[in-house]
Write a protein that binds this DNA or RNA. Structure first.
Lengths: 186, 186
DNA sequence: TTGACAGTTTGCGATTTTCGAAGATATCTC
DNA sequence: GAGATATCTTCGAAAATCGCAAACTGTCAA
């Protein structure tokens, strides 16, 4: 890797393309950031130098890009452990309708603080809120329901489903998805 | 870091504790693996040597443990990008009841293959399957529904909710959760 | 009790990688 | 064109990783 004689930087080769929307840099255009992120989606600890040689830029560029992407909250690089590994084996989905006149956001914020809740969204449809929770046991779930859902005047309706099996959890997105989606995509 | 004279390994200081269940090593007991993983949950690229000095073992031990945890599918270390960053801004939840006599698993497997689906579970309750999807537009979602849900004889009922706001996505678990859960925990 | 045995941990040197700083190149503005 | 801005590259020092052999400990059988 040292056949290059001393040669100064070649400068930027990519114009500062900006998406029409005025927001910050994203990953929508299949550019350098995208290719870097796709590699880090395969292995979050891949050395910058390896990424650099694959995508064809210098190590420093990869390092700066990743640092910027993380700082901008576009990506995160973290270890993930399945809740099962921590003993949380009782997995449920709970749907909630708030009482008439109640503050949906307030209810959502209150529930979102609970450590058992790992997914909470505001919905438009049959229910106002959808919530996924993990518990160590059925008894823990019962206590969770009693304490945090039933008896609260701002919660009018609660419907529960037990998660029997998680078939798929997809955390990673890439532009390749477009290709895989199938032909007739209008 | 070199004030130590040549000294061979001290050997293992942790007995091979095994949880009563006979399954493979997990993260349930608050041991070394747990502390390593918790650090990697904060920064997936934290150097092994830094982790080692924090938890008080050698770098090689941390490296071996992490390698093993990844090989055992207990943890993953990967970059995550929000679907928004890739242009997937139309977020829905779809609930499905399969037709009487149909194979729930087969339906689940078919849907799980679709790139738009990022979460798919088998449920016990009002619906048989719960599915979360991301699409680039409302029109894409409509096509998704028509092609993959409606018209399939093994799908009897479909109910959709639009995700208006994701309040919480929790990917990381730790034993600290137990402490935060509150006092009266039976 | 004793002696393998298996599983981990450690130390270490060679190789890679990271890091920070400085120079180079291109774009944009005036 | 000159200057400002932003990004990329190079480079050497510092740090981290990797592979391996040796050492340690608890288990199990004799």
């Amino acid at each position: 890797m040292s056949e290059k004689t001393q040669k100064a930087g070649r400068g930027r080769s990519r114009p500062p393309v900006r998406t029409d929307a005025g927001d910050s840099v994203s990953l929508e255009e299949p550019e350098l950031n995208m290719r870097i992120v796709e590699l880090l989606q395969q292995d979050g600890r891949m050395p910058y130098s390896s990424i650099a040689s694959i995508v064809g830029v210098s190590e420093g560029t990869v390092r700066n890009r990743v640092k910027q992407l993380i700082a901008d909250n576009v990506i995160t690089i973290q270890a993930e452990a399945l809740p099962d590994a921590f003993g949380y084996k009782f997995n449920t989905m709970t749907f909630i309708n708030v009482a008439a006149g109640a503050d949906v956001d307030a209810v959502a914020r209150r529930l979102a603080q609970l450590p058992d809740v790992y997914y909470l969204t505001m919905l438009l449809g049959r229910f106002d809120l959808g919530m996924a929770t993990y518990h160590k046991s059925q008894e823990d779930f019962r206590e969770f329901l009693i304490r945090h859902c039933y008896g609260h005047p701002d919660i009018a309706e609660v419907e529960n489903s037990l998660v029997l099996k998680v078939h798929k959890v997809k955390l990673h997105w890439s532009l390749d998805d477009d290709a895989r989606r199938g032909p007739a995509s209008s």
